[in-house]
């Protein structure tokens, strides 16, 4: 009764939600970054990547978002995933908890998924399959693999720690209407990509574009963030796309009803609420 498809779908989507639903920049940190980056002295590449990481994965103390995901293959055939996501930061820049409730399509509807993210050790992940009343713990050592049949890897969306790569600031240039730092990153240990180039918006301190190259120097995947919204002073991404250039496959993720500091309690992230959606999930306060 290990419905692995469902598991993969939930697993990936929840991580995606975690990473994307909360992709934003805190007004204060933007200000901080701006003052730290006068025209005369550029910040270090590592500090740019760290700031972008924090804005991307740790805005406010908690958050809620409604997510729609569209996967399109090379023949133009598409599949979709819809879910609502809750996030709680246990420690800023450290442990986090995510809760995801699927609302569609029909075959995964009412499935729920929970992650206790640990930046140092493997994450703890659970899925609930309602037709069997089954809570399943999932092994979580799979950071490089694709999920949900999407173009994001688990790591893309759960947050690759900035200290895993060596970063070099290569130039500044305009990207999608914003001035951006261009940072080249190479993994400290052999990994699923050989090189990554990131365009980080100076104004938003968020990645606007990422290009992933393999060890032959070929472009494999391209990430873009498009569409931003200000939620209580926090700039949040409303649309994010990952394209696999080699396989001609694309994943688009759109966010709505984004809210922060909803007052999500720690006990939401337990088996009780895997089995029954919490009120905080359904209500969408503050949106």
């Amino acid at each position: 009764m290990n419905t692995m498809n469902t598991i993969r779908v939930a697993l990936g989507a929840a991580l995606l939600a975690g990473a994307l639903g909360v992709q934003s920049v805190n007004a204060q940190t933007t200000e901080g970054a701006a003052t730290a980056a006068p025209t005369t002295t550029a910040p270090t590449a590592e500090s740019v990547m760290k700031q972008a990481h924090m804005n991307l994965f740790y805005p406010a103390d908690d958050g809620r978002a409604v997510v729609h995901m569209e996967l399109t293959d090379k023949r133009g055939k598409s599949r979709s995933r819809d879910f609502i996501m809750l996030r709680l930061d246990v420690e800023d820049g450290g442990e986090q908890k995510y809760y995801t409730w699927f609302t569609g399509p029909s075959d995964v509807k009412r499935t729920s998924f929970m992650v206790w993210k640990d930046p140092v050790k493997d994450d703890s992940r659970w899925i609930y399959i309602p037709a069997l009343d089954l809570v399943k713990r999932i092994s979580a050592n799979d950071k490089a693999s694709s999920f949900v049949g999407s173009d994001f890897s688990y790591e893309d969306v759960s947050g690759r720690h900035w200290s895993d790569d060596v970063h070099t600031l290569v130039r500044e240039e305009e990207q999608a209407g914003d001035m951006a730092w261009v940072v080249e990153s190479t993994p400290k240990e052999k990994d699923s990509f050989a090189k990554k180039i990131t365009w980080v918006s100076k104004e938003k301190m968020l990645p606007l574009r990422e290009e992933y190259f393999n060890d032959k120097g070929e472009l494999e995947r391209v990430f873009t963030a498009e569409g931003f919204v200000d939620v209580d002073g926090i700039i949040s991404v409303t649309k994010r796309t990952m394209t696999n250039e080699k396989k001609n496959h694309k994943t688009v993720v759109e966010f709505s009803e984004i809210s922060y500091d909803v007052g999500i309690e720690d006990d939401i992230f337990t088996e009780r609420y895997l089995k029954a959606p919490p009120k905080a999930l359904l209500e969408g306060e503050g949106s």
């Binding site: 290990n2 692995m4 498809n5 993969r8 293959d73 599949r79 694709s146 999920f147 049949g149 999407s150």
Partner: peptide, 15 residues
């Protein structure tokens, strides 16, 4: 023993 493999953008499950 259980083996689960997903292929073709995880649209195909072999179990």
């Amino acid at each position: 023993l259980r083996l689960e493999k997903l292929v073709h953008y995880q649209t195909v499950r072999l179990s």
